[in-house]
Design a protein around this nucleic acid. Structure first.
Lengths: 105, 105
DNA sequence: TAGTTAATTAACTATTTAGTTAAATATATA
DNA sequence: TATATATTTAACTAAATAGTTAATTAACTA
């Protein structure tokens, strides 16, 4: 859990996740989207991997990275659930989480 | 947004939020729950305040802090929504975010 | 085999973060 | 008024973070 929020605290890493939510990419392709060295990106990728938010597969000389969406959602859920009072579960749709929550008060 | 995840990246600060989700507390009461100096706690409180996750009100010599639950949920929602494909909105209940998301794949 | 490309690891540096103690501020009370 | 209490701010230090370049590893290709 701590790993996950630590991983999400970086704008660069959140941007990596956003890219991967659209398509799987190789390490080099990801690095190409940032103005930063490949080793720096590689470190970000390893932090996201340790948090369980992405996974990788080596194909030849390339390493393909993809988002592990279920872990992202499971982590956020595990965290948010503690803020939902008993008998008043989250019951939301799409963009509406915040609004519904506001209406609960 | 970056403020929020930065704020949430600390276990101490997440614990503060958890305490405040049960009841509003003064700065001193919060500090009493941690083995850490009051100035250290004060800094954590100001980080959470800047992120919009808590608010405070001075009553006499005490400062009462409370959770701003709607901002917590709104922030999480704004983030997660980008990972929900169009036409496949989040539609979840209570502990089920992760599971529902898994079933979508 | 030699050379090239993709990616990671190692070694290092600058900056940020998280804590400390001491000082300051503001309110309450004897 | 003087003193005590609650909280924050200031000044500082140790540790963690995020980046750099150079070196290494692994796989492809001429």
């Amino acid at each position: 859990m701590s790993n996950v929020f630590q991983a999400l605290s970086s704008p660069v890493r959140r941007k990596i996740l956003a890219f991967l939510s659209e398509a799987s990419l190789t390490a080099g392709e990801i690095a190409g989207k940032f103005e930063m060295s490949k080793p720096a990106l590689s470190k970000h990728l390893s932090i996201l991997t340790n948090a369980g938010l992405i996974s990788s597969e080596k194909k030849g000389q390339f390493v393909h990275y993809c988002l592990v969406k279920e872990n992202l959602f499971a982590s956020m859920n595990d965290f948010l659930v503690d803020f939902c009072p008993e008998g008043k579960p989250l019951k939301v749709e799409s963009h509406a989480i915040a609004k519904e929550q506001r209406d609960m008060e």
